[in-house]
Design a protein around this nucleic acid. Structure first.
Lengths: 169, 169
DNA sequence: ATGGGCATGTAAATCGTTACATGATTCT
DNA sequence: AGAATCATGTAACGATTTACATGCCCAT
């Protein structure tokens, strides 16, 4: 997804270390990305080299010292520019879609099982989004959870319609 | 997405060359994947080496000869096994979601512009799905188009609700 | 003759995940 | 004592895209 703007966007809010960013991503942004250390640290190094970030090492008592990164003017400008561009139209690369497309190789019972399985998964996801909505601490977090919830709900409804209509065939 | 099963699934229907697969993918599966030659040919070579496929070169008059691939029993078994597994729960990695999350760095007018832009894009996509629904030649193609249409429609509705509620803030 | 379709492929670059490597401290 | 948390990073691997490279035929 280009993690550049993820990093830039989070650091625009407050200076952070790589570890801080990973924690933030894991706790409040899990529905957007799963960015790992293997991506995050190299991204920070690259942005530092490119002049989008600066870094200050902060010693701590009883802990390893932190490398705290913060935006330069250039980094801030890059972020603003990106934010003002329209979001790239992204493909919905779902494995499920491929299986649906290849459903001719399944018999009716198998197809129904697949759809039911998918719906069960989606219903579980929906519940995590509901939890996200309740625990949201900023408007942005709430929007995100609500958006994801809405699309997930739409998928469940589609699956239900499909299951009903397919049962009659 | 692992193109293995895309290739296996298409070849299960009828033997094809890499070129044929690419054409099929481009014309009727555009909403699922954009698989390029750089992925397709190496995937075919690998599946051939792994014993999932066999190949026969077919000379043609006035055209380069084709390498037509078809499934072995092993390939057919692999495909069946995969089809019977539940689809992996996939993340909705949308660039738009990241921008929404980072919206605190935009002022109200800019946010409205972003949402409107996104809605316009989604409405265009919706029209392509409607065209896909009309031109579908198999039930599977129709399901796919209908599924994509439903999710796209849900996104548009969410954006409209958001635009309305946000206009009052 | 130029562009498009048919047909094969490779190379370089980018992107990302997973697993590994290290080491101190704090909680149970 | 062992597990979790804090904190940094690298290496190997795998996946994918884009661009390149080749060449024949057909229609305008």
């Amino acid at each position: 997804m280009s993690y550049k703007y993820l990093v830039l966007g989070l650091l625009a809010e407050r200076p952070m270390s790589g570890y801080d960013i990973k924690k933030h991503v894991k706790t409040v942004m899990a529905s957007i990305t799963t960015a790992s250390y293997g991506t995050l640290y190299p991204t920070l190094h690259k942005l530092l080299a490119d002049g989008d970030l600066e870094m200050q090492e902060v010693p701590q008592q009883g802990r390893p010292s932190k490398k705290v990164y913060f935006l330069t003017d250039q980094g801030r400008a890059d972020l603003q520019k990106w934010l003002h561009q329209p979001a790239a139209a992204d493909q919905v690369k779902r494995e499920f879609l491929l299986k649906l497309y290849l459903a001719k190789h399944l018999d009716a019972a198998e197809l129904r099982a697949m759809l039911a399985g998918r719906r069960t998964e989606a219903e579980m996801l929906l519940r995590t989004y509901e939890a996200d909505k309740r625990s949201a601490r900023t408007p942005e977090q709430a929007w995100l959870a609500d958006y994801s919830w809405s699309l997930c709900q739409a998928e469940i409804e589609w699956l239900q319609r499909f299951e009903v209509s397919y049962a009659n065939v």
